[in-house]
Design a protein around this nucleic acid. Structure first.
Length: 642
RNA sequence: GCCGGCAUAGCUCAGUGGUAGAGCAGCGGUUUUGUAAACCGUUGGUCGGGAGUUCAAAUCUCUCUGCCGGCACCA
């Protein structure tokens, strides 16, 4: 005799076991139609799930995030069913939900074409229209392995075989098709109405490049057509903020075939780049860092000693000189900084020693990894290494975490993901050292009060790391900042200090980067702001223009005034209409446009227009300068428009 | 590196075996202009590189390079 308690606290009693669907129907016909699944306690179940005893139940519809996830998961099944009907030779593997959609990997003799994709999508629509019931059943593991082997699904059988033998396997069937799945799923395929197949790509079986390549089909699915259309529109908008496009439109940089993965910075882009450096210098200096500079080329022996040659030798650029020595072009700055630390005897009194460098590094990245400014072969790190005594480690790591977060906030990145990555399979150093390093970093992260996710096995080969991850316009995540605890490199490279008992000690080394790669950070920054950089960063902050050439002298004089304040100013004295000039400079995302006509000249004023198109009225140049100063000093938190 | 796609003027793109095109940009004029595109004229391309098929290749084939979307990698 189950009594069901609903989310609003109301209760319903039944004199026999009921399904989730029946409970939904007892509440209302509309809810019965909208029901995708049920939530019993914390557990998601199908609408066909039978409630035998008293429980708390909520009906999951597409308004529930869990409901949307179920729709996407079920759409992945619909995709697999359609593929099996059209390409019976294809084998199914896995089909998980991802952000905004899903994918499904198939093993097939050839890649799917875009024509295939259209045919598959059309078949999915037919299957949806047929409104096939989705039914769950359970099977013993070994029986399930035998079943999938029997129907020629070797991959599925392999997956099931890796599940413990004692577990019952749930299978979901719809029409002629059955898949292994934990569920839950929508009650019938008719619930799947708004979906679209997006692209095909290769993907390795079990994510291992030694395995065969499968054919992955990506799709998106939404509760209704309107939300699907909105999503597709968002994608189009995101494309417009692609940093590669903005870089060209704003004449910031270019790349070309002769230098794959390397950037040609144009004047405005380089100015922007230098402004990032100038900002970081100020922040670093205040935080006790000393800027240093190491050689670009160092003998291979140093990289062998550090362990980089062993780990990354394949990805290092090398050069052989006439004396037959082999040098590596530095792929990172740490060994250089250790050499500087090693000069002379270091006292414990000097610690922490904080060396920072804007170091240009070269890494021969795999060709397929290159991606605009985000992944290049030649890039500049705001790299720093801090040598501390073990007891200073936590405080130093906490301070650095806070510095990173504070700097990100200055750039408008309030939301970022932080990941904690621990020891990778390929590493140097004993487990005892790793235990120590991981514990220290975790302790520091907790002391800093940050929230992070756990990223097992993704640490650097010499130590665990915190990764500060930013997201680009179309949702790809990129590691920017990093903080690493390293107990290995100081030993390998022979760094020491003398403690208070005159004993030689090995310092702990912290690696940290805040921008990470300036190139990448700039790419993210451009996308984050859609090219509309905050005024304090903009390579051109103000453009002045006259309406006719009668105002030229006044414009030049006013521009001089602004330039003397250190503002980045250009004058547009071209023989063009003011509307044309406004349009061009607005497209160039110049923060402020100042216009002077005869009226302004007569009154000794300027007319101010913001990038957003707002007319801020006329004012004396001095007033503009003062109000702009407030915006610049607050790094855009306060604006001249306010 | 792997799978797939793409590569035509500075940019965005059309051209699918038969004499390389458009819009914008650029350049030369005219216009002295009031807050997101004035008007007229005009320059510009070994169709990514190489090889092949063909009477004939931007177009078909092979190959190399680069880029794009994924996967793998990311000190």
């Amino acid at each position: 005799m189950p009594t069901i308690t609903l989310p609003d606290g109301s209760q319903r009693s039944f004199d026999h076991p009921v399904t989730v669907a029946e409970v939904a129907a007892s509440i209302g016909a509309g809810l019965a139609r909208a029901a995708l699944a049920g939530r019993v306690g914390d557990k998601l179940v199908d609408t066909s799930y039978r409630l035998e005893g008293d429980c708390k139940l909520s009906i999951v519809t597409d308004r529930d995030p869990a409901g949307l996830e179920i729709i996407r998961h079920s759409t992945a099944h619909l995709l697999a069913q359609a593929v099996k009907q059209l390409f019976p030779e294809a084998q199914v593997t896995i089909g998980p939900v991802i952000e905004d959609g899903f994918y499904y990997d198939f093993a097939y003799s050839r890649p799917f074409t875009t024509e295939d994709l259209a045919a598959i999508e059309a078949r999915m629509r037919e299957l949806s229209k047929s409104d096939l019931a989705v039914e769950r059943r359970e099977m013993a593991r070994d029986a399930a392995v035998a079943y999938f082997r029997g129907i020629g699904e070797a991959y599925k059988a392999e997956i099931i075989a890796s599940i413990p033998a004692t577990e019952a396997i749930s299978l979901y069937g719809q029409g002629d098709w059955v898949d292994l799945c934990r569920g839950p799923h929508v009650p019938s395929t008719g619930k799947l109405k708004a979906f679209k197949l997006m692209k095909v790509a290769g993907a390795y079986w079990r994510g291992d490049s030694r395995n065969e390549m499968l054919q992955r089909i990506y799709g998106t699915a939404w509760p209704d057509q309107k939300q699907l259309d909105a999503y597709l529109h968002r994608l189009e908008e995101a494309e417009k903020r692609d940093h590669r496009r903005i870089g060209r439109e704003l004449d910031l940089f270019h790349m070309q075939e002769e230098a794959p993965g390397a950037v040609f910075w144009h004047p405005k882009g380089w100015r922007l780049f230098q402004r990032l450096i100038a900002y970081m210098r100020v922040r670093q200096e205040a935080a006790g860092f000393q800027e240093v500079n190491g050689p670009e080329l160092m003998d291979r022996s140093l990289w062998i000693a550090s362990g980089h040659w062993e780990q990354f030798g394949e990805n290092m650029y090398t050069t052989q000189t006439p004396d037959e020595r082999v040098y590596a072009i530095k792929p990172m700055n740490c060994p250089g900084h250790v050499q500087i630390f090693k000069q002379g005897l270091r006292s414990y009194r000097e610690l922490p020693v904080r060396f920072a460098e804007f170091g240009k590094v070269h890494r021969y990245e795999p060709s397929g990894a290159l991606h605009g400014l985000m992944r290049v072969r030649a890039f500049t790190q705001d790299d720093a290494h801090v040598f501390v005594a073990p007891e200073q480690l936590t405080a130093e790591a906490v301070a650095m975490t806070q510095l990173i977060l504070s700097i990100y906030r200055d750039f408008g990145f309030d939301e970022l993901r932080i990941k904690f990555s621990d020891r990778p399979a390929k590493r140097v150093g004993s487990d005892a050292i790793w235990d120590q390093a991981e514990a220290a970093l975790r302790q520091a992260a907790d002391a800093a009060g940050i929230e992070y996710t756990f990223n097992p096995g993704e640490g650097a080969f010499y130590g665990p790391k915190l990764e500060f991850v930013l997201r680009d316009a179309i949702g790809r995540d990129w590691q920017c900042g990093t903080l690493q605890v390293d107990l290995n490199m100081p030993v390998r490279l022979g760094a020491h200090y003398i403690d208070e008992h005159s004993q030689k000690q090995t310092p702990v080394m912290l690696h940290r980067a805040i921008f990470g790669s300036l190139e990448r950070f700039l790419g993210i920054l451009l996308e984050h702001h859609a090219g509309k950089l905050p005024t304090w960063l903009a390579p051109v902050q103000v453009v002045l223009m006259g309406i006719t050439d009668r105002q030229h002298e006044y414009v030049l004089k006013t521009a001089d005034l602004l330039k003397k304040q250190g503002l980045l100013v250009e004058c547009d004295l071209r023989n063009e209409k003011v509307g044309f000039k406004i349009r061009e400079h607005t497209l160039q995302r110049v923060p402020y446009l100042l216009v002077a006509g005869d009226k302004e000249v007569a009154a000794n004023l300027i007319s101010v227009r913001s990038r957003s198109g707002k007319d801020l009225g006329t004012m004396p140049a001095q007033t503009f300068i003062e109000r702009l100063a407030v915006e610049l000093e607050s790094r855009g938190r306060r604006s001249l428009e306010d």
